[in-house]
Design a binder for these strands. Structure first.
Lengths: 229, 229
DNA sequence: TTGACTTCGTGTTAAAATTACACATTACTT
DNA sequence: AAGTAATGTGTAATTTTAACACGAAGTCAA
């Protein structure tokens, strides 16, 4: 079936920058393109927006189709509209960034069609289209956002230790943080709930596990809350 | 001439939230629609993106066509993609926000076709489409941005007094600020250049005029500079 | 069982930033 | 010359941030 319009129209796509944290380094999920253009290049997961779905829906649908990931933290990033970003025709892409918890990672591994792989953000391969620019924008946004909204929890498992949270902040922001000051600050927000469990690993003292309180999180977000580590 | 595609495509538009400051209150520029749908309703200036122009270009072009404004501070805001935001067909709109200096205002008044008018942001009429939501998003962004980037100058004339700058911050943020602390803080950034002129008005002591240093401004922006009043 | 090893968990002090607060100055007006 | 109105300026108290070290708790191996 053909669709005809009075004036030429750009194609509309979504592209997603999916971040993950493996405990050591911040990672980004890329897929290998099976088709031209940029066949066999790595690219951000994404695809065309259907005319009867919202942009958010399109992003979630494409993510699930291409990587198997669902139910993750997803926010619109920026819309990229250079005239020649796609060699075939005019394509405008609404970019999103997403944060995944480690439990989701395995799901992502068990993806079907296209090859999907995690890359450390410090070492990503050349990307198709203008995806390098999109990625850079997303990383900058994540860095900025992390310092004034407590979204870091979205990258950790539901139960985590303060050291894990600190490692996350350190690897996203690329800085070292004083342990005592970090704990003091984080706990002062009264956002973390200590669990009765401990995390045992290796030949050393076990660590207290925490989960974060989504109710207080929502309340703070509404106040235009600044998190600042 | 007709244009035909394999799948249906959304129409792509830009909409602009133009802020101005008249010394007292923050204003937004609206135009009255001459055509259906929402004929005679107030709406944000905007229009269709041409297939051979970037999104930024489209926003600037529409602004000039509909309001006469050009060369203003313009940044992409968010892309609105609800399925039924336009009753005619699927329309995705890339929203921008813009800041104008008072000198531009007169230009805006002398617009041609559609009626254009400034409204105080605290008292805007019902808007067409989902423009109320776009406006609210823009105002929130401006408030947020003002507290960590020195974009306030974009709303003032090239020469301004510290009191004018303070009034601007107060009316955008909706708070009162201590005069001495405000001056101390603003001057400490070393971003303002005192002029040899003074601003005389009314039966009282004249005020020192300043301009802001665009070179230092750019340098600070690159550092991921926080302005925070 | 004992000692070595490794990460966890905690408090104080100095420095810096923020907040609160009041009055003399300067020009215009009458 | 006196009245009026906004400008311009400093200090002290409080809060926040930054720097810094060591005992506690568990595992492992001898």
């Amino acid at each position: 079936m053909k669709h005809t319009y009075e004036y030429p129209r750009a194609a509309l796509t979504v592209d997603c920058v999916v971040f993950g944290f493996d405990g050591g380094a911040l990672q980004v999920l890329l897929i290998r393109r099976g088709l031209a253009p940029f066949k066999d290049h790595w690219a951000l997961p994404g695809g065309f927006v259907r005319v009867e779905e919202t942009l958010d829906d399109a992003a979630r649908r494409e993510l699930q189709e291409e990587t198997g990931l669902k139910d993750l933290f997803l926010e619109q990033l920026y819309t990229f509209g250079s005239v020649n970003r796609d060699p075939r025709e005019r394509v405008v892409s609404v970019a999103y960034y997403a944060l995944t918890k480690p439990a989701d990672h395995t799901t992502a591994a068990s993806t079907d069609a296209a090859e999907a792989r995690w890359f450390p953000v410090t070492d990503i391969p050349p990307l198709a289209f203008d995806h390098a620019e999109i990625f850079a924008t997303a990383l900058a946004r994540l860095r900025g956002k992390l310092t004034y909204q407590p979204i870091g929890f979205e990258l950790l498992p539901p139960k985590f230790t303060l050291t894990q949270l600190q490692r996350l902040y350190e690897s996203v922001l690329g800085t070292e943080i004083d342990k005592r000051n970090f704990r003091k600050k984080v706990l002062s927000y009264d956002l973390l709930i200590p669990l009765k469990e401990q995390h045992r690993e290796g030949a050393h003292r076990p660590a207290q596990l925490f989960r974060f309180d989504p109710v207080k999180y929502e309340r703070l977000k509404k106040k235009g809350f600044l998190f600042e580590i």
